[in-house]
């Protein structure tokens, strides 16, 4: 009982029916972005955010780099997925490490949303554009974070940034201004670096493992 079929050169004429292989190339609609694949991606994004922050400490780098996962999921799976990743990162850190991070879930969500929208508009197709995207993301982050910090926490972060804020205030800035000023001093490098790293990571993901959004948002 053995059935054998030809191999190699003899098999050259097993061709697919006409029209095979033609596929549409369009960005999926916002609601269609939250697929099972995206839901499986979100916890990974959260993990990347946290581990990025830990590696920075291990290597003693003068940055945070704790939003790489949020930007990454936004770029490869769309704004909604990025937003949920950002939101969840702060929820998870809030419930496992420090509840004072909970309000900043809003900032993280906006970062993911922003990264996704920028990607949708083609702002992740070349390095110069990615740098611009990084600066835009920095602006978004500062504009959302500063009011939270001022109204909920009296302008205090409970971290080393407070020293920078104090220095600005000592040189005559108001408390509110010092919060913005410290952000503009620290954030541009951090967010541009995070965005660039997320871009390189996203680009190195094989096409086969990218969600449909990510097959279009990045350079080929």
């Amino acid at each position: 009982m053995l059935t054998v079929r030809p191999t190699g050169q003899d098999a050259a004429d097993y061709n697919p029916p006409p029209g095979f292989g033609v596929q549409a190339h369009r960005f999926p609609a916002l609601k269609a972005q939250l697929t099972t694949r995206a839901w499986a991606l979100i916890p990974i994004g959260v993990g990347i955010n946290v581990v990025g922050g830990v590696l920075v400490t291990t290597l003693r780098l003068p940055l945070y780099l704790d939003t790489i996962g949020t930007v990454l999921t936004g770029v490869i799976a769309g704004p909604l997925v990025g937003a949920v990743t950002g939101l969840l990162t702060n929820l998870v850190l809030g419930v496992t490490a420090n509840p004072t991070l909970l309000p900043y879930a809003v900032t993280s969500a906006f970062i993911g949303l922003g990264a996704g929208c920028l990607a949708r508009w083609g702002m992740f197709r070349s390095v110069p554009r990615v740098i611009v995207s990084g600066l835009v993301i920095m602006l978004i982050a500062t504009l959302v974070t500063a009011p939270i910090s001022i109204f909920l926490f009296g302008g205090v972060a409970g971290t080393g940034v407070d020293a920078v804020r104090g220095a600005f205030a000592a040189f005559g800035s108001s408390l509110v201004a010092s919060v913005f000023q410290s952000s503009f001093l620290v954030e541009p490098f951090d967010k541009t670096a995070s965005t660039l790293l997320a871009f390189y990571a996203a680009k190195s993901i094989p096409m086969r493992f990218r969600p449909p959004f990510g097959r279009l948002s990045l350079p080929r």
Binding site: T35, T36, R37, W39, A40, L41, I44, G47, I48, V51, G52, L55, V56, L59, R60, L61, L65, I68, L72, L197, Y200, A201, S204, I205, P206, F209
Partner: peptide, 27 residues
């Protein structure tokens, strides 16, 4: 050390994403 960061984060991300593809199917 910045280069080291990239060489550590790279495999971590790619590996995790490939794993997430399997997980998505299983889910």
């Amino acid at each position: 050390r910045v280069k080291a960061f990239a060489s550590l984060l790279g495999p971590l991300i790619t590996g995790a994403l490939i794993a997430s593809d399997t997980r998505a199917m299983a889910l």
